[in-house]
Write a protein that binds this DNA or RNA. Structure first.
Lengths: 236, 236
DNA sequence: GGTTGTACGGTTGTCGACAATCGCATTGGG
DNA sequence: CCCAATGCGATTGTCGACAACCGTACAACC
């Protein structure tokens, strides 16, 4: 599959560090709001503060971290507006990717990959593994955008998917109903396979709307003291 | 307008440097493919290599620069596929922004700002100033996305607009017909003002398709030795 | 003549240390 | 008892220097 020759292309240390931190944020190792000390992270990763700071700047540019002068770097915490915004942007990106895929000459391999992701979701549901389910969900959408062949949509999507995981990690306590989640993804794949653009966009938008309403409803129900319509994710 | 008090919020040096470099790239000061020496830039901007490298990482993450290990940083040069990709992503982002704007309670101020941008375009056309026309065009689309109130769409748009300017700078020799450009923007504003979503998306997509075909046709006509369908922006 | 080996210049990658700034605990005063 | 001022600790921001690496040009060899 992968050519063992040629493009060894060792990535820069900053890129590797950025990927690590990104994965850690996505995984929930660093909950939103936590401060990331530079010296601590640097010696934990075995690098100096220079490359680490470069990696941090990348993540700040992506919107995953928030930098305060002489205060430090903090993992961004997302409020209700952010949740809506993430899903608005995701809808825009994934819709464009899907339309690009529909215009492609051969979308069979893409459909196959989506089916693989769905299979992973099914296995996760069968095993009752919520984390694996979220992973497979993530993989489904990542594959969808990657298959479009658009590097810019792909890059945007990567950041947005990480933010999605941040939202989900905040309310991991209340997982979504696995059946409807699976059904929505199957619908998405089917619409893509059949080449029905209008149906695909409709399903995609419904899927996103469902997700955001699910997240926001949960967060609004939980505190049980909701006079203001604001989400409770702002403890400050 | 701007409150002279309080939020002084001195931005980080890296952010300022990144903005400078970004503006320089957009302005065409650094043509695509040029290598950016760190020591040279650092002492020209009056900062050390540390903050400058952080700024560079931001631009690399945005896709404006390309980093090669131990080789240096280069301004990315865009080929035909990149042009299509930029406009695909722009269509996705601006369409979402416009739809968001249509759903907003009051879109009058946004329309006013777009009208201001159109007025600037008209003035540029009257003066025959191609650079001012491009600036106004840029401002129109930037305002459109900014008015949507979505920070993520706004961030994506900013990078994409810089890349658009990079494309335009490459073929500045052959400016687009000002009348049709103006007409398309007026149509866009009108559709937005009237709240006609389907017409707005149609106009927007047509506008983007026009732009990309204009750019690619120009680049394909120019070399006059086009056997391969590839764009000539790959001198390597 | 073509190819390989080698020395060189320049660039990036990385590191450690110093200075500036901020938050917080302590202490003095009202 | 509460509030304000101050000193301290910790963290970030910045800088200069060293080491590693790559591309190129020249020379030697087959």
């Amino acid at each position: 599959m992968t050519d063992p020759l040629e493009p060894i292309s060792r990535r820069s240390t900053a890129a590797i560090v950025a990927d690590r931190i990104r994965a850690a944020i996505m995984r929930g190792t660093f909950p939103p709001g936590t401060q990331l000390g530079e010296v601590d992270l640097a010696q934990r990763l075995g690098v100096s503060r220079g490359p680490l700071r470069e990696a941090m700047q990348r993540l700040v540019a992506e919107g995953l971290l928030r930098s305060e002068r002489h205060r430090g770097l903090f993992v961004r915490d997302l409020d209700a507006a952010d949740v809506r915004d993430v899903y608005t942007a995701r809808t825009a990106v994934e819709r464009a990717a899907a339309l690009l895929l529909l215009a492609a000459p051969d979308r069979a391999p893409a459909v196959a990959r989506l089916t693989t992701a769905i299979a992973a979701m099914e296995a996760a549901v069968a095993a009752g593994d919520a984390v694996a389910l979220a992973d497979a969900d993530h993989e489904f959408h990542a594959e969808l955008v990657a298959a479009s062949g658009s590097p810019r949509l792909h890059r945007m999507s990567r950041t947005l998917l990480v933010e999605t995981r941040m939202c989900l990690a905040a309310l991991q306590q209340n997982p979504p109903p696995p059946e409807s989640l699976l059904a929505e993804h199957r619908l998405l794949r089917d619409a893509l396979e059949q080449g029905d653009a209008t149906r695909m966009t409709a399903v995609l938008e419904a899927h996103m709307a469902d997700a955001v309403s699910r997240i926001l409803d949960v967060t609004l129900v939980d505190p049980a003291a909701g006079e203001s319509g604001e989400a409770p994710a702002l403890p400050a």
